[in-house]
């Protein structure tokens, strides 16, 4: 049955295929349009460069009125990513707007990799190292990048 959420997700998918933003990709899983797999490539000139980070996006029938739940599957070391892969990003919580689509979500997460917000930490160690010991931070991130090749 086609519901507004499913119809909208088909449109999101079509747009993502026709006009893909650089460095991100995503597609519904084989048998369920409400669950997507996505990949974000680590942005250039950041310690995440060369990483291929996998995510899952889970939508409810309330999409696009409510945001989906987005989670990194790949192990991440980032000030705004929780241990379980959950992401602390305003547009996925209290600043969600129904005008955002999957492309916008993925590109926002991609820019969060380049510009962490250490003042709203989901991983306090990553936030602290990011602020006080950038070299150690980058070392930890690079370990994630290497692990992302194997995952």
């Amino acid at each position: 049955m086609s519901t507004p959420a499913r119809r909208r997700l088909m449109r999101d998918f079509k747009r993502l295929q026709e006009d893909p933003p650089t460095g991100v990709s995503g597609a519904p899983t084989d048998n369920n349009i409400m669950i997507w797999n996505a990949v974000i490539f680590g942005p250039h000139d950041t310690p995440f460069e060369d990483g291929t980070f996998k995510l899952t996006i889970e939508f409810t029938e309330e999409y696009p009125n409510k945001p989906p739940t987005v989670r990194f599957v790949s192990h991440m070391f980032h000030p705004n990513v929780y241990a379980d892969g959950g992401i602390c990003l305003d547009i996925l919580q209290n600043r969600w707007s129904p005008t955002y689509d999957v492309s916008a979500i993925l590109t926002s997460i991609q820019s969060l990799l380049s510009d962490p917000n250490p003042n709203s930490p989901a991983n306090s160690m990553a936030a602290q190292l990011y602020k006080e010991n950038r070299r150690e931070y980058e070392k930890r991130v690079k370990a994630c990048v290497e692990q992302s090749f194997i995952d």
């Binding site: 929780y82 241990a83 379980d84 959950g86 919580q93 989901a122 991983n123 306090s124 160690m125 990553a126």
Partner: peptide, 19 residues
């Protein structure tokens, strides 16, 4: 002690609030 632990142990508060 918290800062030196290997894995971050924070609970995902955002999701609890949303739930």
């Amino acid at each position: 002690s918290k800062n030196s632990s290997e894995e971050p142990s924070q609970v995902n508060q955002d999701e609890l609030i949303l739930a």
